[in-house]
Each structure stands twice: as structure tokens, then as C-alpha cells.
């Protein structure tokens, strides 16, 4: 089970819901959320760093630090902080999950 999420919404919840899958688990987000927002709100984390395998959870949120990469099902990399959620989007927090 995913741990209790650390991030918390502070309003602006009057939006359409969008459904995506993170590592094969169904996640419900709202239109306008970034992939990182969706992941953080479900207690998840993004890809492990390349060295000590500790998971990451974003850092700069402005597309500069590149620590929040996730993989799509067609093995593309996305910056979770500047990619908006889309209905039916499938992302993986490891390259293995994406079939590499």
C-alpha cells in the first residue's frame, strides 16, 4: 500500500477528473494537474536516482533539476513536473517498468 501522501490540495478542486496509471496502479487526478502532482498526491515517488536507488519526489518543480523523470509506455521520458496529466496516460517510475 502506498504511504500516506505528503502533498495536500489547497483548493481549486472544482475540475474534471482525469484517470492515469502509475506503475500499473490506477490513479485519479484532476485536469490541470502535473504528473508529479498526481504521483505526490498518491503517496508515490518518482524514479530512483542512478546511484543509491533511493526514490525521488521532485525538487525544483520548474523543469530545471531533471530529478523527476518518469517513463511512458512507449519508452519516452517525461519531466513529471512539467507534463500535464492526460486521460489514459500510463507512466512508470522506473525504466524497467516501461519495458527497457
Amino acid at each position: 500500500m502506498a504511504p500516506r501522501p505528503r502533498a495536500k490540495r489547497l483548493g481549486a478542486i472544482d475540475r474534471r477528473s482525469v484517470h492515469l496509471q502509475v506503475d500499473g496502479i490506477a490513479v485519479q487526478a484532476l485536469e490541470g494537474d502535473t504528473v508529479l502532482t498526481a504521483i505526490l498526491l498518491h503517496g508515490g515517488q518518482t524514479g530512483a536516482d542512478a546511484f543509491n536507488q533511493t526514490k525521488q519526489a521532485g525538487f525544483c518543480l520548474m523543469g530545471a533539476c531533471q530529478s523527476c523523470w518518469v517513463w511512458t509506455s512507449n519508452a519516452q521520458r517525461l519531466r513529471a513536473c512539467d507534463a500535464e496529466v492526460k486521460e489514459g496516460l500510463e507512466v512508470f517510475t522506473t525504466s524497467k517498468g516501461a519495458g527497457w
Partner: peptide
């Protein structure tokens, strides 16, 4: 900056 972006742009703490 990241914490502020979460507030402003994602309505998130």
C-alpha cells in the same frame, strides 16, 4: 521556488 510553484500553479502544499 519549487514550493512556491506548487502553491501558485498546482494549488498544492
Amino acid at each position: 521556488g519549487g514550493a512556491q510553484i506548487a502553491l501558485k500553479s498546482q494549488a498544492l502544499t
